[in-house]
């Protein structure tokens, strides 16, 4: 199991989520994933062999309670991250012309650059080489992730997106939806205050970006947790160049940079 960071952490959730890639679309060829520790023990007891192209386990006998279905996980193996972040080795992405974002998960230390955006209305979904996705609502609010240890299932974020795009103070409620282990949504209602803090000039991927720093402070119901997000919005156009956004209680906050718009 790859541990993706220099950061000390006691948790086992680390998984490099994403990685620099400019390759064309389809997901990386699946590889077998090694299971960690005790789970591997359980899996080892179950893993058997099957005929190539076997339907065993998906077939009629499956429900006769007689077959042990091998725990065959054709999931891609997480890949090593590239360099430190922010400050991905500029040489590595200097020639990249396709859109690219950098993502750093603060709690786990997972780090990556993610490309291959696909657009659906005002939402851009970025996909990594190891098939993790992050969906971002214009001008840059994360509304869903897929493939993280615990995903942000969906978010209602129209209010914050509108206010951030206008670079003005606002107060509103929005919500984050995670799923519990029974697929029931856990809705975290966030009561938020957004305010402009200062203008800052950032250097992102060797380019200067004039931004206004917007701070969003939210209180989450039901548990009263306090969440702080920061957006660095372009002073002239509705583009978030850089942000720190809280994704959920398990994954924590993500730091994002728009490396190649």
């Amino acid at each position: 199991m790859t541990r993706a960071t220099t950061r000390a952490t006691t948790r086992a959730t680390t998984r490099a989520t994403t990685r620099a890639t400019t390759r064309a679309m389809p997901p990386a060829a699946p590889r077998r994933r090694r299971l960690p520790g005790a789970a591997a023990l359980a899996a080892a007891l179950l893993l058997g062999c099957t005929a190539p192209g076997s339907e065993m386990g998906g077939g009629a006998l499956d429900n006769l309670g007689t077959i042990i279905e091998a725990a065959r996980a054709d999931a891609p193996e997480p890949l090593e991250p590239v360099g430190a972040f922010p400050g991905v080795d500029p040489a590595l992405i200097a020639g990249v012309t396709n859109p690219l974002i950098g993502v750093y998960l603060e709690d786990s230390g997972a780090l990556a650059t993610v490309g291959m955006p696909s657009r659906a209305g005002a939402v851009t979904t970025w996909m990594s080489g190891d098939s993790r996705t992050i969906a971002v609502l214009d001008p840059g609010i994360v509304i869903a992730t897929r493939g993280l240890p615990v995903d942000l299932h969906a978010a209602e974020a129209g209010s914050v997106a509108h206010a951030v795009a206008q670079r003005r103070a606002a107060s509103y409620t929005r919500d984050h939806r995670m799923l519990d282990s029974t697929y029931a949504p856990r809705i975290l209602r966030l009561a938020c205050e957004l305010r402009a803090e200062a203008d800052e000039t950032l250097v992102i991927n060797q380019k200067l970006r004039q931004t206004r720093r917007m701070a969003e402070a939210c209180t989450a119901a039901p548990d009263g947790a306090v969440i702080e997000n920061i957006y660095w919005v372009d002073v002239d156009s509705p583009i978030i160049w850089q942000s720190r956004q809280w994704l959920g209680p398990e994954v924590g906050a993500a730091f994002l940079q728009l490396l190649v718009p």
């Binding site: 209305g121 098939s131 897929r146 493939g147 240890p149 615990v150 799923l179 519990d180 282990s181």
Partner: peptide
């Protein structure tokens, strides 16, 4: 506790819906 345990299915992400 099923409600307290978050959904942890470690599947690769699905394809985004192409519009």
């Amino acid at each position: 506790d099923p409600r307290r345990t978050p959904q942890r299915a470690q599947h690769p992400a699905p394809l985004p819906v192409s519009i």
